[in-house]
Design a protein around this nucleic acid. Sequence first.
DNA 1: CTGTTAGCGCCTTCAG
DNA 2: CTGAAGGCGCTAACAG
Lengths: 382, 382
Amino acid sequence: MAVTLADVAARAGVSPATVSRVLSGSYPVTEGTRGRVLRAVAELEYVVDGPASALAGAGSDLVGILVNDLADPFFGVLAAAVQGELGGGAGPGGEKLAVVCSTGGSPQRELDHLTHLQRQRAAAVVLTGGAPEDPGHARALAAKVARLTEAGTRVVLCGRPPQDPEAAAAAGRGRAAAPPVTLAFDNRGGARRLTAHLLALGHRRIGCVAGPAGRTTTAERLAGHRDALAAHGIADVPARTVPGAYDRASGYDAALELLRREPRLTAVVAANDTAALGVCAALRDRGLRIPEDVSVAGFDDLPFSVDAAPALTTVRLPLREAGARAGRLALGRAVAPPGGVATLPAELLVRESTGPVRSEAAAAGGGGGAVSGGIGSGRSGG
Amino acid sequence: MAVTLADVAARAGVSPATVSRVLSGSYPVTEGTRGRVLRAVAELEYVVDGPASALAGAGSDLVGILVNDLADPFFGVLAAAVQGELGGGAGPGGEKLAVVCSTGGSPQRELDHLTHLQRQRAAAVVLTGGAPEDPGHARALAAKVARLTEAGTRVVLCGRPPQDPEAAAAAGRGRAAAPPVTLAFDNRGGARRLTAHLLALGHRRIGCVAGPAGRTTTAERLAGHRDALAAHGIADVPARTVPGAYDRASGYDAALELLRREPRLTAVVAANDTAALGVCAALRDRGLRIPEDVSVAGFDDLPFSVDAAPALTTVRLPLREAGARAGRLALGRAVAPPGGVATLPAELLVRESTGPVRSEAAAAGGGGGAVSGGIGSGRSGG
DNA sequence: CTGTTAGCGCCTTCAG
DNA sequence: CTGAAGGCGCTAACAG
């Protein structure tokens, strides 16, 4: 930081205040002065100092985007959409610098990042992805969000359920400029329709590779799955659900475990498309064909799922739209939905990885021999 | 920002300076005082003000990561790896806040983001992905990088060639604390081995879906492709290369265009795995089997490529490793390679999407009928 | 070990 | 329309 406002002022033969006015464009300045100032700025390659500027009262231009995992396309697409809206930054409000922070799914890191953002006086924060279900964390988060909104930071929840109103109320102590806005996904409805689709195809022994335990998204999708089962008068068999994560390896292991527990499985719903890919790989390795022997379904409709082998039946979540809207909300360029909460639809996409259940006779004759039990996966504890 | 350092000091009955010392932990403080201060901090939910702190001399804890597109797994994986290294932030150097900025491939936005980071006094900046080949931009970028390093910001180039030494020298005017470090990928070598693999399988009419024009990565991969062709004494047919982008749609369109120009194509190398997926889709839509009729190869070995149909032959780039190393370099926790440049290997991964060229006879008999010329794609201009 | 004193670089009143 | 002055909240010398 060698060259300062004062340097520019000296070179242009004006006062620092004038330079400031030219740069912020908030005040009328004579064309001539303006030109000289701008030239001095260019010649000196002057760049406004962020901290000093922020300290002196100009708001920061940081917008925080919290994601669980940057390498996960779900968050990549979401974050890209948010950032796309903050945009080229040509806007008069000035360009915002998007700060994408990865929490790795850790509640503590979520809080830490939020503190960081608070420290930096972020203009807005977008929290993406499901939330941990721990009440303690929910309370801490509500408190942190309250501090943020009180300080004028706009908060948008994208892809998670709204905050508990009571927790939020308890956490609030000052006057929030703008209460947090929520853009939720209809995970439950989507999961229900997906399982209903499988049931309609005749499947009765459906395995479920759930998402990480203790997260709202996992709970919602599981609830939808059970809704569908219940609606068809089918008892939910707990052993047919194994926990996992949103990655391929997890889907692979979980599928093997499911097969061990119930070799006659005819369908598997995975936590998301990435896990579904792992499920497919495991099934294939065991000599099972998809969907002839076993149907597989994903969730999210991530970009690659249409090109998988076979193309994945899944539930499309409007990630792009959600991110873009969250971005607009963060910028204050969109009005909050009534009640501060909007639920975005989840659409069933039937492709090639699901099909009619095979008849029992065919099952007995088919590649079923490969599925003898007791493979001794070290993962039996679940 | 209601509660300040002074408030905490008052409540704890000490001076502001003491509070500052307790919080920064840089100076010895009595246990008792320390306890009272910490309690006051907790009770008031005090959070240090970033701008003020930075202005007063404490360095900023921002690390910028520039990527072309967050929704692209290539960058997602890279950015996640970098961020993973900045890490939980338990380290003594204190936690860094990673700022992931998406340039959308625009040189101007790249510069803009760097200015922003400069404004914020970023501790380090990691530039990922190929660079534009425009000399004007290279000069501007070199100048910007020089300003950054002069200000003490560490700069790491990850996945792009090193800066032109002359341009860098010309841009420098002050004393750079640490010159930029480069982690390059052996794109050319990888592409050469990939095409050589195809040639070894007997392919002679190889189509090439190139990456975006005017970018170093595109040029390097193309050069490698031509190296292999030349090494086998095969003339490069310009019409067999069509430009594209790193997305599925681009691969799809490009494959159709290639087929229009040369219906007897037996292999296609794509700009990357995502584009390869599009190529495969287009080929399938035209009734061609992979790899029996046409072999297809990708690049990068993105996470989904092993699960594609068929599993993609590709060139693995050590994205995870590169990102992690870039992160360590950014933190100053790794020593720069000799000469400031390290080239990371690109490994050929032969999977199922490439196979021996079909015999001419088989070609005549096979699904070739679908490939009649003159489909009139509007894209013939290239 | 702790309190006091100066700014960091800028923006924003106030005068002129 | 422009200059001068004050302070944003914190840290870094200095004293004590």
